[in-house]
Design a protein around this nucleic acid. Structure first.
Lengths: 221, 221
DNA sequence: CACCTTTAGCTAATGGTATTAGCTTCTGAT
DNA sequence: ATCAGAAGCTAATACCATTAGCTAAAGGTG
């Protein structure tokens, strides 16, 4: 019987830790390869080469190349969510938190291009993330909904802004900016170039889309 | 000496036509394969199989797989540009033409997903389009600039809208809508789902970004 | 018509990929 | 000290792109 990677090691502890370390090492290497060679330049053989091991040995840790993609996808989602959450926590609740959160998202994605493309670009059509790996992105929508609710409560936006529709519309802004930046200025970080600096301007349009009943300290740009 | 695909056949005419037919047939098949299997599911071997020929024979027509990608890229650019140009010609010059043109662009891209991804998604990092294949996209920017100039002349937008900056900003809208639609609702055509229907609303924001000196029927709240 | 160059196909071979099967060796718990 | 499982290995299969070199047909030119 072959060793199934789905069955870890309930017996030992030292062994389990070693195993987990190797798994992390494989993911680190895979991420580095993806960064250097492009998302679908990732190859099991290259990972094995860098790990100093023969290709079949990788199968002791991951059942397939797709499983590595999936683990990287999850890793990216978790890190990305954390950076967004932190930025939002350090901002004024409401529109400011939403903007800062989305900027942090953009910053993270441009700084981790390979993972970002894997997560939001889907350049490997044969790879479909598992439900578990997808879960953090649902949490992201929840965070944005909460910020929008805060903005409505604070009178920054009209009540229609507390809706999934508004989340989709705003996510369109950040998606557009990032798509353009990654396709046309793949080496620039957030805040440089022709596209990412326009994001704050775009966010200033949100009150025009969902005008509050009592106009606040609105200023023209 | 091997037959170089870069040296067509200046001698015959009948031969040249046959050759061109085969080239088109290969591209048709390649496009079909990409549509079915995803952009980087395209394989020379599969094309050869469907053409009823051995894989090396393809090299009589294209020097490499990348050359096929490049020809498809060019094909897509030309078709896409044509559909956009037509939509703009049948609209009122100015903001209407710009909106209709971009909608036609979105419609075309969702209807030709494989080519669209190849053109604007770049899922095959090892593939970089040749300058010749890239040329139509420059013409696209020119068309949009012209529409913006018309809009300014008609008083629909302020003078700042006649700028490359405005083109980038507006292309952010369409890119965002399409990115979200293709990533999250890959099977819906333009006009259905959560994202593409928001595009007209987004375009209505453009006058808010570049307010005309003499306000038109539209007013800010 | 015969000739002869070009074209379009072929097979065989090279080196790359993911994956599976099955063997061996080492680790570490009992 | 034993013994099961873990983690490595080699060998093999089945893909893939690409190159080399051969053959047969096609078609223009003497």
């Amino acid at each position: 019987m072959r060793t199934e990677p789905s069955a870890p090691a309930p017996t030992s502890d030292r062994r389990a830790r070693r195993r987990q370390e190797t798994i992390e090492e494989i993911l680190d290497i895979a991420q580095a390869v993806m960064t250097e060679e492009g998302v679908n330049g990732l190859s099991l053989a290259e990972v094995a080469r860098r790990l100093g091991v023969q290709p079949p040995s990788i199968y002791k840790y991951f059942p397939s190349l797709m499983a590595i993609y999936d683990a990287l996808f999850l890793r990216g989602q978790v890190e990305h969510l954390a950076s967004m959450r932190e930025a939002m926590a350090n901002a004024t609740p409401g529109l400011d938190a939403l903007t800062k959160g989305l900027e942090a998202s953009g910053r993270w994605l441009l700084a981790h291009r390979a993972l970002g493309q894997l997560m939001f670009w889907r350049p490997v059509p044969s790879f479909e993330p598992s439900d578990a790996s997808f879960a953090p992105s649902i949490e992201m929508v929840r965070l944005q909904r909460a910020a929008l609710a805060d903005a409505v409560a604070a009178g920054e936006l009209g009540p229609g802004a507390d809706s999934d529709e508004a989340v989709y519309l705003i996510s369109t802004f950040i998606a557009g900016v990032l798509t353009q930046a990654m396709a046309n200025e793949p080496d620039l970080p957030w805040g440089e170039g022709r596209f990412t600096p326009t994001f704050p301007k775009l966010m200033q349009l949100v009150p025009a889309l969902y005008p509050p009943r009592t106009p606040t300290k609105k200023r023209r740009s």
